[in-house]
Simulated assay, not measured.
Amino acid sequence: MSETLRVVAAGDHFVLPELIERAVSAAVGDRPAEVRPLTLGWPLEPFGPVAEVTEASDAEDAMIEALAGAQVLVTQMGPVTERVLAASPDLRLVVVCRGGPVNVNLDAAKTRDVRVCFTPGRNAAATAEFTVGMMLAALRRIPQAHEPLAGRGSWEGAAYYTYEQSGLELEDLPVGLVGYGAVGSRVARVLCAFGAQVMVYDPYVHHHEIHGLRLSSLDDLLRRSRVISLHARLTAETRGLIGARELGLLPRGSVVVNVARGPLLDEGALCDALESGRLSAAALDTYEREPLPADSRLPGLRDRVVLTPHLGGASRAVAEKAAAIAALEVGRWVRGEPLAHCLT
């Protein structure tokens, strides 16, 4: 009989520990496995920096206690810091249920010969759908019309049927996508079905990879687009990619959508453009600081913004996919097979 595999399923209130446990039990087959559940606080408690890692739950002590004697950790928000790794000498594999292991100290893991995997693509469909929903909400003033009717029984939202206040439709609308990865490419397909004129800026994509869509420079895309939607990864190069200069290139009355990462966009410059009327609307799911700070100017622009609390990937299918993709990596590791999404 093989030695019992000890796994910690450090889930949360989205990727539930029981989802991880069921998926891992199926993936390891006949190998005896003990799966130890741990429930972290996210999203009921916000993530943030923990020691030297980012976007993690503040739970180092709970992680250390749970990982005693464990060889495998599957988690979404668990902080895998130098301290946690040093206190977990039996740990050999960490699988993060996210598109990137930002909550793991990769250098410390490599030093300790701990393999680190992640789960790319688990939320691409959900985020793409949410992006199009946010775009339609901003273009057609759906939240602004909903609020007075649902809240006060007021029909005042009918003013959005006047020519001056009515919105834009996607058919024939020039829409610029900044980024053409797993999410951006899905958004492009949906927008093309609506009949939008889709343009793409992505310096890492070539013409033959975008299936006939217009590939543009960033400045040209901004000058031609009535809507821009951000889909780039957040890196040192892309931080602040859309600032005051870039917003100034958009045609007057344009709309900005960001369901990617908040720091891609200069929020101060965005608020200035909305307040001045240069932009007609913005739809944001991510922000420079999360949760949105009390002194943010965005809620004061409620007639011109659609704001949601980082919900783009919030579908049950995403949680189930994340657990399943992570468990497949655990199964490969148990069988000594090459890992599919490994960074160390």
Rank of each mutant, 00 (worst) to 15 (best):
V96E: 03
P46Q: 03
Q144W: 00
F118M: 03
S154L: 13
A340C: 07
L136R: 14
G176A: 04
N105A: 15
R252D: 08
G184I: 08
V15F: 05
H211C: 14
E164M: 15
E129Q: 09
A86D: 15
V24Q: 01
E275W: 07
R98M: 14
D30Y: 06
N123D: 12
K321P: 01
G313R: 12
T4P: 07
H13N: 04
P203A: 11
V28I: 11
R83L: 08
C342P: 00
V257D: 07
L173K: 10
M77D: 00
L311E: 07
R233D: 08
L241H: 00
P17N: 06
R115Q: 14
M1I: 02
A319P: 03
R140D: 04
S2P: 15
A319L: 04
R302T: 11
H310I: 04
P251E: 07
S2H: 11
R189F: 00
L213E: 12
E288G: 14
L93T: 01
D266C: 02
V116F: 14
E329V: 09
V28Y: 02
G11K: 02
C117Y: 02
A319W: 02
R189S: 03
V24G: 02
A137D: 06
T344S: 10
L38E: 02
N258R: 10
T238L: 01
A314R: 09
A27W: 01
L191K: 08
S88L: 10
T162V: 10
A86E: 15
E65I: 13
P143L: 13
Y160V: 04
P263L: 06
E18N: 11
V74S: 01
S280A: 13
L44G: 07
A323Y: 05
D272Y: 07
H211E: 15
A273W: 02
V187T: 01
T308G: 03
D285N: 08
M77F: 12
G151E: 15
P79F: 08
V132G: 07
V198E: 09
A68F: 00
I20G: 01
G29C: 07
R214Q: 13
D61S: 13
T119M: 10
L191W: 05
A70F: 04
V198G: 10
A232K: 10
M199A: 14
P17E: 05
A196S: 12
A281G: 14
L173W: 11
Y204W: 12
S25I: 13
V8S: 00
A182W: 11
V259D: 09
L298S: 04
R152A: 10
R152E: 11
T286I: 04
F130W: 14
V259T: 15
A188H: 06
G153W: 10
L301V: 08
Y180L: 02
V95C: 13
L222E: 04
P299N: 03
M199P: 05
